[in-house]
Amino acid sequence: MAPQLGADALLFVGDLSDGDLRLVKRITQLTCPVAVILGNHDRGKDRSGARLQQQLTLLGDRHCAWALRAWHAPAVGIVGARPCSAGGGFHLSQAVQAVYGPVTEEESARRIVEAACRVPNDWPLVVLAHCGPTGLGSEASSPCGRDWKKPAIDWGDRDLALALERMKERRRADLVVFGHMHHHLRGGQGERITFHRDRAGTLYVNAACVPRTGLDASGEPLHHFTWVEFEGTVPTLVSHRWYRPQGDLAYEQTLHRAGVQGGI
């Protein structure tokens, strides 16, 4: 249904499947600009890295781990963070090490910053990650808060937080998009906070609505997308949207609108 939405580009925050290649192949068939960061589940149960490498080969430069994915129409720079993150600070799975080598926390942050430095100043600078950074709160309901085990702690990525802080020396990120931490909290604890704006003005949005499909009150299917609009480098609208299969909008939860204070 991507063509019906009228979006200029699509970003995928990972955990596409448990190593199943079918969805990856469908992504490669999309005609609009696409950027992907794979998640910790995308390697499946394969620790050798072979299944991960198959997906990377299919995606080509659509997968932007530690790299810049840029388009001129629309003009936007997408900077990929560490691939296949499981959150919780910094850890490389055996599969990731088999494909990328023994990357350190410092090296990971450096690669993200170097990619960001290549984005022109008049383009939106978007960081695409599987798990968000540390520093967004340590409650279970925080954007990257651990909700499946007590005590609740900050389960974000340290290398991403380090990179975002260093990026401010030249230019802060305009938007950080991530997933991994599901909107519905475990054990009936409620809903996760999915939007944050820091003091520097960077917006953070958690797009991990799981499952991404559901039914409305009448039993009609709905599909979830996180929607962002820019004017120049300024994100003017961030919202969670639920669409019907035909592409018409059924419901929208506005998280941020430029000029409106007190976003959710």
Rank of each mutant, 00 (worst) to 15 (best):
H223L: 14
G219K: 05
L185N: 07
E191A: 04
T213M: 14
C209H: 06
T194L: 06
Y204T: 08
G187L: 07
T202K: 01
H183C: 00
L203G: 02
I193F: 01
H183M: 11
G214A: 12
R199F: 09
G179R: 01
I193N: 09
N206F: 02
A200E: 13
M181R: 02
T194K: 03
E220S: 15
G179Y: 01
F195L: 12
G187T: 04
M181I: 13
T213R: 12
S218Q: 15
F178W: 06
T213Q: 13
V176S: 02
S218V: 02
N206H: 07
L215E: 00
H182E: 10
M181Q: 06
R212D: 09
F178K: 00
T194G: 07
D198W: 05
L185R: 03
P221K: 04
H180K: 01
C209R: 05
H196K: 05
A200C: 14
F195S: 05
Y204M: 12
E220G: 09
T213W: 06
F195V: 08
R197F: 10
R212A: 15
A200P: 02
Y204D: 05
C209D: 05
R197E: 15
G219F: 04
G201W: 11
I193R: 14
Q189I: 01
V210C: 15
Y204I: 13
R212P: 03
G190W: 01
E191C: 02
V176L: 07
Y204H: 07
L203V: 05
G179I: 03
A208W: 00
A208R: 00
V210S: 14
H223Y: 14
H182V: 00
L203S: 07
V205G: 06
T194V: 12
R199M: 13
G190V: 05
L185V: 09
P221I: 15
H182S: 06
H224D: 11
G187I: 03
R186D: 13
R212E: 09
A217Y: 05
T194F: 02
E191G: 00
L185E: 03
S218N: 14
F178D: 06
G219E: 00
C209K: 04
R192C: 02
Q189V: 07
R186Y: 14
L222W: 10
H184W: 04
F225I: 11
S218I: 00
R186G: 15
G201E: 13
H182M: 00
G179V: 00
L215S: 08
E220R: 15
L203Q: 01
N206A: 14
F195H: 09
F195A: 04
F178P: 03
D216F: 08
E220Q: 15
A207P: 03
R186P: 09
T213D: 13
V176G: 02
G179A: 09
D216I: 05
T202N: 02
S218G: 14
G187M: 05
E191V: 04
G190A: 06
L203C: 15
M181G: 01
V205I: 11
A208H: 04
I193C: 12
